[in-house]
Amino acid sequence: MARPNPDLINALRRTAKKLKEGAPYQWGHMGGCNCGNLAQELTKLSKDQIHTYAMQRYGDWNEQVDDYCQTSSLPIDIIINEMLNAGLMLEDLKHLEKLSDKQVLARFPVEKRLALKHNVRDDVVAYMYEWANLLEERLLEKIQLPVLEELSFA
């Protein structure tokens, strides 16, 4: 699971909001799919740039992740590297593309969980918001506030 951090949480929420408000979405397009839309937010590249870079190697996001090389100079590997630097793990990208992370899915009511479709905009939006909420909760669990000693008013 991704490393919870404010920038990643906000990127997920911004991506979900943009999709909800009508940003281009096309599941079969490497720059306009689930991962592609998040990649746009994290890298500031356009959907067409991401798609063009991804097409320099074969496959969908799952295959691109399987073939990812940290030291490669292929643009898609540079994009994936930026996403990893934002706190994501390789498995997160696979799960996002298929809306399949069990920890995120467990937060939905069973009937919604079973009905989620990986290539339906509204389902992607719901998944991203719920994932952001999960990461935020995990981040807040790590925050320790100092205990203040009881003040005396003598």
Rank of each mutant, 00 (worst) to 15 (best):
L45I: 03
H51S: 12
K47E: 11
L90H: 04
G28E: 13
P146Y: 09
L105G: 11
T15E: 05
T15W: 01
T43K: 00
R57D: 10
G59T: 03
L74N: 12
I78T: 10
P109V: 06
Q56H: 12
W61V: 06
S100F: 07
A106T: 05
Q49M: 08
A16T: 02
R121H: 04
L134S: 06
Q40E: 06
A132E: 03
K142H: 13
V147I: 14
W27C: 01
M83R: 06
L90P: 13
K142G: 14
I78H: 09
Q144F: 09
L42P: 09
V110A: 15
E63S: 08
E111S: 14
L38P: 11
E141G: 02
Y58G: 11
Y58I: 08
F108G: 10
L145I: 03
A115W: 00
H118F: 15
F108W: 05
L19I: 04
L84F: 09
R13G: 01
Y68I: 00
K98I: 08
K117P: 01
G31L: 04
L42N: 04
I79H: 02
L8N: 02
D67A: 10
N10H: 11
E21I: 07
L19K: 03
W131D: 00
I80D: 03
H95F: 14
V65M: 09
K17P: 02
N37P: 07
Q40I: 03
E130R: 14
L134P: 04
P109I: 02
L140R: 15
A16W: 04
L8E: 01
H118S: 15
L42G: 04
H118Y: 15
L151E: 14
S46N: 04
G87E: 06
M1C: 10
K112P: 05
N10E: 14
A16N: 02
V104C: 07
K98P: 04
E91R: 14
E150F: 04
L88Y: 05
C69D: 15
P146I: 09
G87D: 07
